[in-house]
Simulated scan of single mutants.
Amino acid sequence: MAKPRVMLGGVPIRPFFHGLPQQTYTPLGDGPVLRRSRGRAVKMQHWQRLWQITVSGDGWMGPGLAGLDYTQPLELRCTQQMELHTTSLSTVIPGNVRPDVEPWALAYTGRDWVKTPITWNSATKAVAITPVPGALEYQVCWMPVFTVLMARPTRGLDAGTNVHSWSFTAEERGE
């Protein structure tokens, strides 16, 4: 099976040609911590679990994203994993999982992390973890897919080395 690629609007970013994509997830909507009149902290927020995603790279050619319609939502498939910690053998993934990459789990045995099988229900996002004897905790991992809104990517060229740089910042649309 081929390694998954970052994809925007169905266009794959190929590391050999377009550069290794650097990916950053920044939470949206978490809001600032403000102080009340007697100094008590209050977390101001309107929504949770939405992300701003920044992807960039440098390669010997651009990624070919000029033909996408940036006035419409786009699907962004990322390869930077997300993960959640649990001591339970069942959990629910809080996000959308790439349909072409199954989630996986690791068990911490006090010394090492070992892979352990899971049962995954894509409709409910429920995960059942196969127990590992002596495991202290588990981590469920997945590669996310986002529906995003964004402006056209930024482009650059170093003419001396013929290196094409590109980057985009997308915001998860939400439901």
Rank of each mutant, 00 (worst) to 15 (best):
T79K: 01
W47F: 08
G57A: 02
I53Q: 03
L74K: 07
V33T: 15
P63H: 01
D69F: 05
R98D: 11
G95E: 08
L76P: 05
T109W: 02
M44Q: 15
N96Y: 07
H46C: 12
G39A: 07
T87H: 10
R36A: 11
V92H: 07
D69T: 08
W60H: 14
T54F: 02
R40F: 13
L76G: 04
D100G: 07
G95H: 02
R77W: 06
A41H: 11
A105K: 01
Q45F: 09
L84F: 07
R40N: 12
W104C: 07
A41L: 10
L65K: 06
W113I: 00
W104E: 05
R49N: 13
N96Q: 12
G95A: 08
N96T: 14
P73K: 06
V97F: 05
P63I: 01
G57Q: 02
T109S: 08
W51V: 03
L76D: 03
P99N: 14
W60F: 12
Q80M: 11
T87W: 02
L68A: 06
R38F: 13
D69A: 13
L68S: 05
N96E: 10
R35N: 14
R77D: 07
I53K: 02
V33M: 15
P94G: 09
D112Q: 10
P63V: 03
G39N: 06
G110F: 00
G64C: 08
M82A: 14
E102M: 14
T71E: 13
Q52Y: 04
Q80Y: 07
D69C: 11
Y108G: 05
A41V: 11
L50K: 12
N96G: 04
Q81S: 08
R49G: 11
G39D: 08
Y108N: 09
W104P: 09
R98S: 14
R36F: 08
V33P: 00
R40D: 11
R49F: 12
P99D: 14
